[in-house]
Design a protein around this nucleic acid. Structure first.
Lengths: 334, 334
DNA sequence: CTGAAAGCGCTTACAG
DNA sequence: CTGAAAGCGCTTACAG
């Protein structure tokens, strides 16, 4: 725990034969300090291997150099990519990122937020699992699952429009019996995508059956996706095409088809909202929406930075990332 | 940036009508404080919504409540899972995790380490890309790519033994022309796995040809894996079985086979060292080593915590996680 | 242009 | 059992 003592600003000042206040200003490039002195101080700092203590700086300046990101599962490709995009933006702005994992447990989410606040983060990016119910105490951007009118921003994908586009594409292939596999309709992605599906079914006058809608587990696990697919395939009039909501559901559905000896897309067509890792290398290559997780992370980070710099409080920004269909082969194209 | 002022310990002390020193001790459950007083202080703290400032605590106590993790690509499933495992252990120990992404650029790795040191992390977990060349200034555990005799610990998988096991399994299927697709032999995984392959080829008396060894890019990208596979398949006497080193190489190799109309495992058998996400749901399900990324992360974290608590300096622990073959279908079994 | 002093929010010897 | 004082490593009015 006790690393050998790092040199402090006082050490630098002593070596440069100036007051610590002067050393501090010199390293900050204050115009009030002579070039000569600055040179001496910089030299001394380099010689000692001086590294400013950001904790002390934050404490004194009363500004944060830390920001927190809270995700349901950092191990899931989807979230790790969002984190990657956000981290890049923060890093460019000299802000370090504290990552918290909640395993979708609301009480862990509350605890994570608590920890972040104790570290005096300047703000938070969160994909909530329902734990953060009250108005946040620091500027907060919600992503993936949004909470309207709360925090300083909301970023999610165009869930409704995206789902309609997917169903619409299957319809263009001549399908009118289209099944749906999604997450439980509790949070944003679960509800909005389901709504998109239902509206598309109505508008396109497709076969509208309750049992064409199957939910996977709250964890969006691949295996629950496979079981949902099996339930669809076991119906008397099974759907001839299926749209899945998450990256792992797509995988699960695909494997369930294989297990039944069904060919995709000939026996059953498949499209997915989220594009799983290597979705283009699957057999068949998966038709899905273009992945933009990193973009989502970058945007959420930019919104937060913007709010941190803003002087007056503003209405929370609400952004829905546009979606784009990537046609591959699982839908029946080619 | 300037959140409305959080209540401080002084506020709590005032509300409880005690000195701040007493308030501090009361919240630390010091035995020197009367139960009555503790009660009053706790009450006051709760009433005010007091949250200790960890930055101030760290500064005063001269102990870290932060730890850093440096990875080449947090977006890659492999690394995000290691981070997940490590984060869980640190969180249980009241330590928050700063995550840095290097994109495999040595200079970014150096900068990341610098940033972490400025935040006075207690220690670092790092999957180096070659940037951290000198003795680290804080306790450091190297993982994935190890640096012997440096830092307080090294954790990697049993690369050599694992590769031999994979080649051995293909040999049991009767193969003697076995190709290899791996990362460039620069760091641990690249070199040790290649050595394992070569030793196995020698010991099992397999066909030993230089062009049976193909390298993907430094980034271990799926596409470079596909190209490596194409080079193998284009040989006059192509290998009838291939072992890949990374999760994405396996994907790439599989897709290259499909593109050529080759069936796996009938036309060419395939096994992989790293198990990609959903490897069991691929067609065919991929024979690979059991994934233990989270375990690796947990172990690295435990080693670091151990070193942080240790009084005397010790020899760096060197751990090679045992591997276990998960036989599925791509090797030809069943 | 430079320095001495105060203070960010804590903890911990030192007294009593 | 409790409190006054010092100090962690910085920055920034305030003087000169």
């Amino acid at each position: 725990m006790e690393a050998e003592r790092q040199p402090t600003l006082a050490d630098v000042a002593r070596a440069a034969r100036v007051a610590t206040s002067t050393a501090s200003r010199a390293l900050q490039e204050s115009p009030r300090i002579s070039e000569m002195t600055k040179l001496r101080v910089r030299e001394a700092a380099r010689g000692l291997g001086y590294r400013p203590n950001r904790l002390a700086q934050s404490l004194r300046k009363q500004t944060a150099s830390l920001v927190g990101i809270v995700v349901p599962d950092i191990g899931a490709p989807f979230f790790s990519r969002v984190v990657k995009g956000a981290q890049a933006v923060f890093e460019q702005n000299g802000i370090a990122v504290l990552v918290m994992n909640t395993e979708r447990a609301p009480e862990r989410e509350v605890a994570a937020l608590q920890t972040l606040l104790e570290h005096r983060v300047g703000g938070v990016l969160i994909a909530t699992s329902g734990g953060s119910t009250s108005e946040p105490e620091v500027p907060t951007v919600y992503f993936d699952n949004i909470v309207l009118k709360r925090g300083v921003g909301n970023v999610t994908r165009a869930n409704h429009a995206g789902m309609r586009q997917l169903v619409g594409h299957l319809h263009e292939h001549g399908h009118d019996r289209i099944g749906y596999i999604g997450g439980p309709p509790l949070l944003t992605s679960g509800t909005e995508r389901l709504d998109g599906y239902r509206d598309a079914v109505r508008e396109l006058d497709l076969v509208d059956r309750d049992d064409y809608v199957q939910f996977g587990e709250q964890t969006w696990s691949a295996h629950s996706g496979a079981r949902a697919m099996e339930r669809l395939l076991a119906l008397v009039d099974p759907p001839a095409a299926v749209v899945t909501s998450g990256e792992s559901f797509a995988f699960g559905a695909l494997s369930a088809c294989r297990a039944r000896g069904l060919r995709v897309p000939d026996d059953v067509a498949l499209v997915s909202f989220d594009d799983p890792p290597f979705g283009d290398l699957l057999d068949p290559p998966l038709t899905a929406l273009r992945p933009n997780e990193e973009e989502m992370g970058r945007l959420a980070a930019v919104l937060l930075l913007h709010a941190l710099q803003a002087t007056a409080a503003q209405q929370p920004a609400e952004v829905r990332l546009p979606v784009e269909l990537v046609v591959r082969r699982s839908c029946g194209c080619q």
